[in-house]
Design a protein around this nucleic acid. Structure first.
Length: 700
RNA sequence: UGGGGGAUCGUUCAACGGUAGGACAGCGGACUCUGACUCCGUCGAUCUAGGUUCGAAUCCUAGUCCCCCAGCCA
């Protein structure tokens, strides 16, 4: 086979082991370049319809189109696909222009509008009529639908299909002049009413819309349909590769048909899978609904997956571009984990964001042995790894605020922040030991008294003693009060886009407003839009500066290993754990929460019980040694004792084992799976398998 | 039950008849004046069944499942 990579399109040295794999679109382009189909030229376009704000899904397309053009030394146009004046607005056009620019792309003087081509499009339509390939149809919407047939039955030809060229020309001209009302007449392509592809059953090419267009005003009352306008706009602009999303795949025959029928320059349409993100919705209809119903505060609400929303939230263009790079491009339907986006944001911000200290939920600390009225100034670096970001000055005094959650009166073993008698470091300042706790009548902690070690100025102990915790802090006398918006995912479930009840799935805590945060004074100079890392908290950007109190939006939290530990302990300690090792059957009343797709991930295997023993200290658990066909026995602790008065009865039984479960360390030992059982107490039963399945056989 | 697409670690992208690899997530560890960053380690997948082949994620056959299409929206 010929070496594709040696064809000269790859830069020198890139065909070595580290070469980036080529996605399927570039593979097609490479093939075109090899065959000379477009003379080595690559010219793409990003063609949004200005009927909403751009979102992260559009960003994928923007990056794809502009990057491909750049990679191949070609060009990419920005084109507004404005063929439906009813839905489109100037506000959207402006936002699109701003957003694509903000993302870091430029189209020079190549901002186009499909409406730029209305005159020529009209001429093309006339030509189609002359060729006998289009006709004016008098069918109304309902009638046309009936004649179209169904997915399985062919359509019937319209009675108007055989009008003469002259009559069609005359009628079309009169449509243009406004002699007919909306819906009275359409221009249709004469293709094939029996085509299995519905798009080819004499599709409407022009429709009458007595509506003011945001650019052409009253000039037209007939407007071309997408399929007609799009392929010809591409053709007119000399686009080589018309990259669009998957749902247009079965429009490609029509794309090709129009261009062939008119015998004009013919770009190649290529379809890729649109981006979906977990915990959000991407359809413009749903986003519009959220805006209109005021579930969010406009298109640029920081919780929205729109470019404008992400900008306001503090996401950077570089992070978004990087994200689009990492998710790749293919034809699989995919839902990308929003954590990848957040990773990209952190990755970018970590490098650039100056560090600051901000206490979101303050707890007052009085340092008893610190001189009254004394103020020290510490010079702290803006970035731990990048000296070029410089320093700022932070004042310190007798009373400081620390984060409420950085103190625990009765700490667990793994908590290494402040607690009575414990010593921690105040970042960049001193070691601090908690000597007393102040409480209100309800027993809530309202403040601490602490002592500091003057020897540890700057944050290091001359005697070399270590502390486990370092806390951020703010001097009470110098603090700036601020409001903080804590944003979380908009929806509670990973895929809210499923049914029509997506509004029920909104996360009620997607925005938490904090109004008593205290910031270090250097933040007074922050400019709107500037992003900082509030140490140990996350990245925050200044939203607006009008009013007395500044407002910071949380862009994204820091990765928080402690939260996981803490939560894990909480789960173990507080919640009543179900009998381990048993998957409880769902109760009748409540619908099962497991989606079929999740269930399909369960690897259910036949397990042969080889050993059974009681577990000391538990009246529910049994220790089973089960053969799952792996050449060794798995130890499974199962809470099935109530179902098994006679242990010997279990020996040799074949049961259903969930084999791909993460093993679980229990106090009795490691449990390497789960066996299927249902019911509770004495009514519990174990799923037993009859017949001759072998241990390890998959159960489907 | 028409047509068009798609099925590879939990997620996503790769591997183009020759060792199934990367990233994110997870887990474990090292480091740390951010429980961050960084570093190291680790877990983990070819939809199913046949066939071709020395060799199959890749080719063939037959299934299964998922997505899209019946706008005068794009």
């Amino acid at each position: 086979m010929e070496e594709a990579k040696a064809s000269g399109t790859a830069a020198p040295g890139t065909e070595s082991a580290g070469a980036k794999p080529v996605d399927f679109i570039r593979a097609i382009i490479n093939e075109h370049n090899r065959s000379g189909r477009f003379g080595g030229k690559v010219h793409t376009r990003f063609p949004p319809e200005p009927n909403g704000y751009l979102h992260i899904g559009h960003a994928k397309s923007v990056c794809l189109n502009f990057k491909i053009a750049a990679d191949y030394n070609g060009l990419c146009n920005l084109r507004m696909d404005d063929t439906n004046p009813v839905k489109e607005e100037v506000e959207y056009i402006e936002s699109i222009i701003q957003d694509v620019h903000w993302l870091g792309f430029d189209w020079d003087d190549r901002l186009f509008y499909a409406s730029d081509y209305y005159d020529r499009l009209y001429e093309y339509a006339v030509k189609l009529i002359r060729l006998g390939k289009a006709y004016v149809c008098d069918q109304g919407p309902d009638e046309m639908r009936q004649y179209r047939g169904t997915l399985t039955e062919p359509g019937r030809e319209s009675p108007w299909r055989s009008r003469s060229v002259e009559e069609n020309l005359d009628l079309f001209e009169r449509m243009r002049k406004g002699e007919f009302g909306e819906g009275e007449k359409t221009l249709r392509a004469r293709i094939d009413m029996a085509s299995p592809n519905l798009n080819m059953r004499d599709p409407v090419t022009y429709r009458i819309l007595h509506s003011t267009h945001h650019r052409t005003g009253e000039k037209w009352c007939i407007y071309p349909m997408y399929d007609f306008a799009h392929c010809l706009s591409d053709s007119l602009e000399g686009i080589t590769h018309s990259i669009c999303t998957l749902e247009f795949e079965d429009h490609r025959p029509l794309y090709d048909w129009y261009l062939d029928a008119l015998d004009v320059y013919h770009p190649q349409q290529i379809e890729f899978a649109r981006l979906n993100l977990t915990y959000t919705v991407m359809s413009k209809r749903k986003l519009l609904q959220l805006v209109q119903q005021k579930n969010v505060n406009g298109w640029d609400d920081p919780r929205m997956p729109t470019i404008a929303g992400m900008r306001r939230r503090g996401y950077t263009p570089g992070a978004i571009r990087n994200f689009c790079e990492r998710i790749g491009v293919a034809k699989n339907d995919s839902v990308v984990d929003v954590e990848l986006l957040e990773f990209c944001v952190r990755e970018d911000l970590n490098l650039k964001a100056p560090r600051r200290m901000a206490v979101l939920d303050p707890l007052e600390v009085v340092i008893e042995n610190y001189p009254e009225g004394q103020v020290e100034e510490f010079r702290l670096p803006n970035h731990p790894d990048d000296p070029s970001l410089g320093f700022r000055t932070v004042p310190f005094s007798k009373t400081v605020y620390i984060e409420k959650e950085d103190f625990m009166e009765e700490p667990s073993a793994k908590f290494f922040r402040l607690a009575p008698g414990r010593e921690v470091r105040l970042r960049g300042a001193y070691f601090l030991t908690c000597t007393g706790v102040r409480k209100n009548g309800k027993g809530e902690v309202t403040g601490l008294t602490c002592s500091y070690d003057p020897q540890t100025k700057g944050g290091d102990a001359p005697d070399g003693r270590k502390v486990k915790g370092t806390l951020h802090w703010v001097s009470a006398a110098h603090a700036i009060k601020a409001d903080i918006n804590l944003y979380d995912r908009l929806f509670q479930v990973p895929s809210p886009e499923g049914g029509d009840n997506f509004l029920d799935l909104l996360n009620p805590d997607s925005l938490r407003r904090l109004s008593s945060a205290m910031l270090e004074p250097s933040l007074a100079d922050a400019r709107p839009g500037a992003t900082f890392q509030f140490e140990r908290q996350g990245y925050f950007c200044l939203d607006e500066k009008d009013g007395q109190t500044p407002v910071f939006n949380r862009t994204v939290t820091l990765r928080d290993t402690w939260a996981k530990i803490d939560k894990g302990e909480g789960d173990r300690g507080r919640k009543k754990a179900p009998a381990p090792g048993v998957k409880p059957a769902p109760k009748k009343e409540e619908a099962p929460k497991i989606a079929m797709e999740d269930f399909a991930k369960v690897d259910l295997r036949v397990g042969l019980i080889r050993e059974v023993s009681l577990v000391e200290g538990s009246d529910k658990l049994l220790r089973l040694m089960v053969d799952v066909g792996e050449g060794r026995l798995r130890q499974i602790f199962a809470g099935i004792r109530p179902a098994c008065p006679d242990l010997d009865d279990l020996l040799g039984r074949k049961v259903a084992v969930v084999a791909n479960l993460k093993e679980r360390q229990m106090k009795f030992g490691l449990s390497e799976g789960m066996i299927l059982a249902g019911g509770e107490g004495e009514r519990m039963g174990i799923v037993t398998l009859n017949g001759d399945p072998l241990p390890g056989d998959r159960i489907s």
